[in-house]
Write a protein that binds this DNA or RNA. Structure first.
Lengths: 200, 200
DNA sequence: TATGATAATGGACACCCTGTCCGGGATTTT
DNA sequence: AAAATCCCGGACAGGGTGTCCATTATCATA
């Protein structure tokens, strides 16, 4: 019995995913046509449609893998961390490190290159993580919880994007520190401590 | 003298902008074709291309108007505000009010409906505002300035989006308060105040 | 109001992309 | 080796894109 997928099929799928990745990095998702993809992957047109219903389907299928990949990265990281129960940003450290390891992949996803679908998928995945971290550490609902979640997710994506685009040499922990500082304590710590200038 | 633009041209342009707005709200920018636009605007195909090079051109031209619109809204607001020089988020109050007044316009721009172009344009406009506010109130560069700017812009867009999508009944000042709280002081104020458990 | 200037129209055009359908050829599995 | 499965290449209609042009409608002005 062939429970495993046919080698050829697996090969084709891999080629398509790889092509998508390459092309997204080069031109961005929206500007991509199925034609481009099968061209890059060197795969027949009908073959493509035998596997996926379109480029969005191909893209989405990639996120299934990412989801599991991340779920594991999170739990392995959580094993080594101690203060995870009081940390409303418990996900961040592992995520920044994961992003550093798979920089190319992340580069294709953030900064608009991934299009709306990618943006949504990522936000969903991250929202789930953040929601969990928050549930055990946030005890004040002055500000609605889903708003806080979105706030954190956006801040994280911003950090990621800024990191890759402007200071790719920084280490994950450095970016993580900035991210945590801003999200946990906001701008106040950065404002003039020497505010004794007794404004006019 | 014909310094003014021909009535017909103005009429056409207005119709196209209106059509774009309507359709973006209905289907989103990316899913839109030039065909749809000229169809909705009841304008000939060649006429469209006589004015714009494509749908992106049309979209961008709309932001020129928005830019000036906002520049004015800001300065009028700044006239009535007193503590603008110490406020790193001086732009926000006026912006939330402006957004409330032109809810339909904003709805087409945020939440992905506007596509990548819109996202970028908005971020550019907001970044400029934030940068100005920040220049006179931020005196600590522990965290790079452009990172802080992006952080604020993202937080603002998140607030805007959450507002429209989840709690449209809230007043601008209520959302503004939440936004400021999160950005200025971060999550700490929301965490267990009963944290006097003298963490071992 | 007459007239030259300018804009809008509708149709035609070649081009590209999309999905879908085959039959022949290649690879894998048994 | 045989049977099953997959891939290929070509063809297809349908739709969108930009561009052209000749014709018609509208405007600005003398």
């Amino acid at each position: 019995m062939s429970r495993e997928i046919d080698r050829r099929a697996a090969r084709t799928r891999k080629a398509l995913h790889q092509a998508l990745l390459t092309l997204m990095l080069r031109k961005g998702y929206e500007a991509l046509s199925v034609q481009d993809i099968i061209d890059e992957a060197d795969v027949g047109r009908s073959t493509f449609y035998a596997h996926y219903t379109g480029k969005e389907d191909l893209l989405r299928s990639g996120f299934q893998m990412l989801r599991e990949e991340l779920k594991e990265a999170q739990s392995t990281a959580r094993a080594g961390a101690k203060a995870s129960h009081d940390d409303p940003l418990g996900f961040s450290t592992a995520m920044f490190e994961h992003a550093a390891r798979y920089a190319d992949h992340y580069r294709t996803m953030i900064g608009g290159r991934g299009g709306a679908v990618t943006e949504n998928e990522i936000r969903l995945i991250l929202s789930e993580m953040v929601r969990q971290d928050l549930s055990s550490s946030l005890h004040d609902d002055t500000i609605p919880r889903d708003f806080v979640v979105q706030f954190i997710v956006s801040a994280f994506l911003t950090a990621l994007n800024w990191w890759f685009e402007r200071k790719p040499k920084l280490s994950p922990s450095q970016v993580d520190a900035m991210f945590r500082s801003l999200v946990l304590d906001g701008l106040s710590p950065l404002m003039g401590d020497e505010s004794r200038s007794s404004a006019d």
